[in-house]
Design a protein around this nucleic acid. Structure first.
Lengths: 200, 200
DNA sequence: AATGTTAGCTACATTCATGTATCTTACTTT
DNA sequence: AAAGTAAGATACATGAATGTAGCTAACATT
């Protein structure tokens, strides 16, 4: 009975990466409520026992997977086109939200049975390296360069763009197009942050 | 062996109401992914067979339960205090979102494994009788009375309040307090809808 | 080359939810 | 009062996921 299916045997990073990817994809597809060791193992083409040797829980595995995935791309604002930089930062956000990792995170935080400690750990691990939310990075950048009034950058104002994108994705189930992102910037964010200071 | 537990036997509306309540509570507690006939039956203190006589599916049951529950309360704006009416409408929203029905709906729409047809049916059944979203009702009312510029009430602007409340609830897991609702109105909605027209 | 580690596989008992079938009996209708 | 309806209870076969155990062979370390 010589030839079993597996030609090579993965180890270390190669194996872990496959498991991480499988966990995130499975969470994005099924939601954390339906996440099982079984399904992750099947998707990663490995044995369930391999998973149990490292993690006790599907959620435990998923959190580690999200932490190990590539960090979220950060907006890189210039200082000459506030409107364009804001739209670009929202586009970064929709790109990430549409990814498996983004949908997995959304599923976790929207889960009514979520553990607050889990959500906190998630925010720390996934967003720790980032300077804040997407539009926040841009707005703070312009405020530091004297182009926006820092007093108007309240927590509410810094959340407007992300909130509208999130709601739109919840309502329609898909990422908004460029026209909608532009509308968010023109009709909601820019009126809230006030007039741009003249460059001297 | 006379005395079995059940003293009376529920029928018709009394039974259905108990089942509906159990389904919504169970969905709010566990999320639609973990919703089972078993758990609903236990919570409603009835037999699983009773559920299967009427519904084939936990989700089928839940949708009917949500449709049969009391409709969402509607904001009743005056025309003299835009700021106060907006805050009150957002308070209505947080009250509903905090209820079992609200959390159940949130769990359904945020479910990555959601069926678009289910979401559509849900919106039709639950929001059909309502004139729109919470702040939308207020803003439209003021526009009709000539106090706001109708051209500024775009889909994006009408969504600002609900979007910020939703994001806040996702982030913190609890309903925002009055100060935060006031901040949303003052710092995001009012700047976006523009100056109020003078009363003649 | 010998040794240690562990991925991959199989097997098993357990638990939980499913869907169906059957029976009794409380309640309703006629 | 008799007949019909359906709630409530029990039982059962099925399937999925769990967590554990044991084996073998591929790969790494010495």
């Amino acid at each position: 009975m010589a030839d079993t299916g597996a030609r090579t045997r993965r180890r270390g990073k190669a194996l872990l990466d496959a498991i991480y990817a499988a966990a995130v994809e499975e969470a994005a597809a099924a939601g954390p409520g339906r996440l099982t060791m079984d399904a992750i193992a099947k998707r990663a083409a490995t044995a369930r026992t391999t998973l149990y040797r490292r993690w006790s829980d599907p959620l435990d595995l998923l959190l580690e997977a999200l932490a190990e995935l590539h960090p979220v791309e950060q907006p890189d604002p210039g200082a000459h086109d506030l409107r364009g930089d804001l739209i670009a930062s929202l586009r970064l956000m929709t790109d990430w939200s549409s990814s498996a990792a983004g949908r997995a995170v959304m599923a976790i935080v929207a889960d009514p049975a979520r553990d607050p400690a889990v959500v906190e750990a998630l925010f720390e691990r996934v967003f720790a390296r980032r300077g804040g939310t997407f539009t926040q990075t841009v707005l703070r950048h312009y405020a530091e360069h004297g182009r926006l009034d820092p007093d108007r950058l309240t927590p509410v104002v810094l959340d407007i763009g992300e909130a509208l994108v999130t709601k739109r994705m919840i309502d329609t189930g898909t990422a908004p197009d460029d026209a909608y992102l532009a509308a968010i910037v023109d009709q909601a964010i820019l009126p809230a942050v006030g007039p741009e200071t003249e460059t001297r």
